[in-house]
Amino acid sequence: MSGTATRRLSSMTKEQWKELLVKNAIYIVIFMIIMFIIISEPSFLSANVFRNILTQSAVRLILAFGVGGIIILQGTDLSLGRSVGFAAVITGSLLQRADYASRFYPDMPALPLVVPLLIACAVSAFFSAINGWVVAKFKIHPFLATLGMMITLYGVLSIYFASGAPGPQPIGGFDTRYTDFVIGSTLGIPNLVIYAAIISVIVWVLWNKTTFGKNLYAVGGNPEAAKVSGVNVSKTIILVYVMAGILYGIGGYLEAARIGSANNGTGYGYELDAIAACVVGGISFSGGIGKVSGAVAGVLMFTVISYGMTFIGMDQYFQYIIKGVIIVAAVALDAKKYIKKT
């Protein structure tokens, strides 16, 4: 008797161990890659590198929160990149140095830094609200609704971009108040990291401590059930998109200064990085599941890997292969969990 019990126990722990391994396989692989990076270049473990990684994660994290909310609603947002690009171009056009040779608005006075931020957020939120409205009202799949918006926004953004005094030229020569505000440091901490931390706290509160947050998970998990229990599904969807738009606006505002220039190609493809980070961080495409900490982990892991691979001088094309495999593996594991759930 005791023999069979032991056998059952040992076989169970083996099963559990296996499940644990499968569940966390993606993290184990990522951990191995990081270990590999450290072994091949021990100087990777330095305060400087750590700082760089946090700084480079900041804007990505803000964008991941935006699209993360939409993914919790079983949606996705392909227009993220163009929205960020539009916000970056608007910000850049409004915050050029007075003595810069080819200004977008030659007679623009020096604005308070917050004005372009508010304008960028308002514009991004407006277009994102349209996405939400189309998705909620016409029940169009978010992939298609936002695909349309992605293309439309590129048109609108390019028209605005070409309307400046110097014609369709990249916008540069930013006001140093603005660039210092974004890429400077306070008490040794990069400002970008501080902004990302503040936004993380706000998003955490919104997702976890408010009715909006409860509705978000309810609608994402099961829209029918949410509707029956009295949640205004359309309003929730539109609000989530508006929130995403505001975050894209902030992202674009920070991005222009980080790049040092903006044009109508800025932001191209950012949606894919943000969505990939969310997925790796456990925000499920099947909806209703996803945490702030997941988005943070996903973004950090992606940045560590891409920074690390660049750091050891790995070929860019090879990096694409590794990133692609990680994304598919993460989704495969996510799907496995989902199958188990039903």
Binding site: S43, S46, N48, V49, N52, T55, Q56, E255, R258, I259, G260, S261, Y268, G269, S306, Y307, T310, F311
Partner: peptide, 16 residues
Amino acid sequence: NSQLIQNEQIEAMIAK
């Protein structure tokens, strides 16, 4: 063709 990626690559190189 991404200035952002280039900036990040330059940061990584500075650390070395």
